[in-house]
Design a protein around this nucleic acid. Structure first.
Lengths: 194, 194
DNA sequence: GAAAAATAAGACAGAGCTGTCCTATTACGG
DNA sequence: CCGTAATAGGACAGCTCTGTCTTATTTTTC
């Protein structure tokens, strides 16, 4: 009944395109439509039939990223247990998003200002901000850090860990361990003052 | 006598172009030659007379970045004093490079593999690697981290701090303090094991 | 102030990407 | 098995960027 009553074929092709696009664009955000079509094993004309514009494709990718990102956050159940553990789960969940994270990161650092991503995120609440503020409030996170700083650094560490692993400069497991350890140590409230 | 016996005028124009290019390209690495020329207050034809190719311009920028980066590293005197202090000085020195850092970061994450930058860096030794290994050897840095990890994380934190400051999401001083504190805490050898 | 150096301004062809369109095949579903 | 849906493969014009050139104009420099 919905407008989205696509035939199985269409849905499958659409997925293939979106997946290929994330992969290709995460490596080079200026990749041409041809390259994306090739990566999806689809003719360029087909790609354009699914997404008339490049802009339209990007928007769909952002929506997709938001959907998967939200799912990851849901799964991390950030409101359960100590903030320290929650943010640990979040790091793992984000890390698993892989190239999708790279795509978003690059996409967002383009028009820094009010990217549609943030508007759409705000519209559905931001559990990340909540857990950071919870940790600061209950003393599990170092009060010397602003929430903004923690959010930004968290992304930077998780993203760049992914980068390190994805181009083979470090093995997955050691990198993940180091990532968690880094976040944990950096955020920890110091027993003996600095 | 040298081939580089440029008139003062040429040297000045060249500098203006290089500076403008760093600024523009650090914000968008696909900026056109026209945009760069405009930013340098120079006709596009003039730009092309100084740098025939885009490739030639980029190469000059990389050389420039290496020169300034090396100077910064020199100034940080990484071989003096405790490794912890040395890496702290290095962070400040790199931070001061500003947009030049952004340019390099973006440039390097393009053709990840064997970018000319690394070749040229190797040719002149890498004090960063030395100080990291020194810190690991003498127990000032957490032995749970590989040198590769420390190097990568260090860059990620410094760079993303610059990013945070440069687009006005955080004030300079608090950001720098947080950056140093983060690096210090992350690298510190833990008194009581994890 | 005159010769030389450097620049601005713009014309130009070649290349690549984009978005649209059309036609011949191929795959799907009833 | 037949009709429909979906695709592949190209042709096409419009656009932007690039690199090269040429010709005036301005700025140094002596």
């Amino acid at each position: 009944m919905s407008i989205e009553a696509e035939s199985g074929t269409r849905a499958r092709t659409r997925r293939a395109i979106l997946d290929a696009a994330v992969t290709v664009l995460s490596e080079r955000r200026t990749a041409s439509m041809s390259e994306i079509a090739d990566a999806a094993n689809v003719a360029r004309s087909t790609l354009h039939r699914y997404f008339a514009d490049r802009a339209e494709l990007i928007e769909a990718l952002v929506d997709n990223a938001i959907a998967r990102g939200s799912a990851a956050v849901q799964e991390a159940a950030l409101d359960k247990g100590p903030a320290t553990d929650a943010i640990r789960r979040l790091a793992l969940a984000y890390f698993d998003l892989g190239p999708l994270m790279t795509f978003l990161w690059q996409e967002l650092s383009l028009d820094q200002e009010d990217h549609p991503f943030w508007q759409k995120m705000e519209a559905q609440g931001d559990p990340m901000t909540e857990v950071v503020e919870r940790g600061l409030a209950d003393g599990s996170f170092d009060p010397a850090f602003e929430a903004e700083w923690i959010r930004h650094m968290f992304w930077a560490v998780v993203f760049s860990t992914w980068e390190l692993v994805s181009d083979g400069r470090m093995a997955r497991q050691p990198a993940i361990s180091a990532m968690l350890r880094t976040i944990e140590k950096a955020l920890a409230t110091e027993a003996a003052g600095a």
